[in-house]
Structures are given as structure tokens and as C-alpha cells.
């Protein structure tokens, strides 16, 4: 919606097919459309947030084939044939993902604006490294900024989720 490319017929569209939260999505996207705008404005998935626009803050983090990417600087067409997971797709059959529950139990968010990206980055970490130590968590997560919590409770939430607490 933000950039309504239907107004720009001169630009060649790229046909894409991908899965978003397990559902197949087929569309024709302009080459410069970011994955963030595609998710938010074309698919109405508002969980990923726009902040720094420079791949620094991590608020727009989503998973592409399981890896955390900054969707503000990742083009939608690059996600063709990929499996994309957003925060909306994390809970399964109404059951929160252990990280979501752990973020609640450990008070790992306040304003919540960084939280979708934070949880997905943490998921990407735990999928690669089931039991990271604190140092590994801090190193992996430093691409996600939180201005509210001071990070301590986020580290605790990730440790607890990894330990199955």
C-alpha cells in the first residue's frame, strides 16, 4: 500500500512464488519492492516493523529458509521459491512457540516494537545452535536493537527457551 506499484506500469514485474508462514503465495512484484513492503503492504502482515531502513536495528527481521534476514534491505523477488516465516507464523495451532512463551515469562519486551524481529532472530540462533552460551547469544543477537529492556531479560529469555525452562 505504501508504494502502490500498480501506478507504475512502466516497470517490469518479476513473477515470484514463495511460501509465507506455510502458505503458497504467487505474485508479480516490481524488482525494487523490498520483502518488508511486500509482507506489510501486499500481504497485510504487519508484525515485521520498519525502523532504521539500514539493516542495523533488526526490527524488520524475518526468516528466509530459516535464516534471519533484514527484510528492509532484502528484495521481495530474492525470496522467490523460499520459505518465509514471519512472527505471525510462529505460533502453531494456537500454541505459542517456546521462545514466545519465554519472552513473556522473562519480561523480555516492553514497547514490543523490536519483539517480532528479536524473537525470530533468536529462533534462527536456536535452530543453528540448540544450547548457545550467553556469549554466543550476545554475539548473535547484536544485529537486533532494543531501546526499552536493556537486553538483560532478552538474554535470559533465550537461555530459558534453549533450556526448555
Amino acid at each position: 500500500m505504501a508504494i502502490n506499484e500498480t501506478q507504475r506500469p512502466d516497470i517490469d514485474r518479476i513473477p515470484v512464488s514463495l511460501t509465507v508462514n506455510g502458505r503458497t503465495v504467487t505474485d508479480n512484484v516490481p524488482p525494487e519492492l523490498t520483502l518488508l513492503d511486500f509482507l506489510r503492504d501486499w500481504l497485510g502482515l504487519k508484525g515485521a516493523k520498519r525502523s532504521c531502513d539500514l539493516q542495523v536495528c533488526g526490527a524488520c527481521t524475518v526468516l528466509v529458509n530459516g535464516r534471519a534476514v533484514s527484510s528492509c534491505t532484502f528484495l521481495a523477488f530474492e525470496a522467490r521459491n523460499a520459505e518465509v516465516t514471519t512472527i505471525e507464523g510462529l505460533a502453531q495451532n494456537g500454541e505459542l512457540h517456546p521462545l514466545q512463551q519465554s519472552f513473556i515469562d522473562n519480561a523480555a519486551f516492553q514497547c514490543g516494537f523490536c519483539t517480532p524481529g528479536m524473537i525470530l532472530a533468536a529462533k534462527s540462533l536456536l535452530d543453528q545452535n540448540h544450547h548457545p552460551n550467553e556469549e554466543e547469544i550476545r554475539a548473535y543477537m547484536k544485529g537486533n536493537i532494543c531501546r526499552c529492556t536493556g537486553y538483560k531479560k532478552i538474554v535470559e529469555a533465550i537461555v530459558a527457551a534453549a533450556n526448555g525452562d
Partner: peptide, 18 residues
């Protein structure tokens, strides 16, 4: 737990930009 907890961990929490 905060009363906005579920909204905020599931991406449902709506901000002005949403």
C-alpha cells in the same frame, strides 16, 4: 505477565504505522 504480552509476542500489537 503484562496484559499486552500475547499481542506483542505474536505481532498482533498494532502501532500507528500498522
Amino acid at each position: 505477565p503484562r496484559i499486552d504480552a500475547l499481542d506483542k509476542v505474536t505481532g498482533r500489537a498494532a502501532y500507528v504505522g500498522d
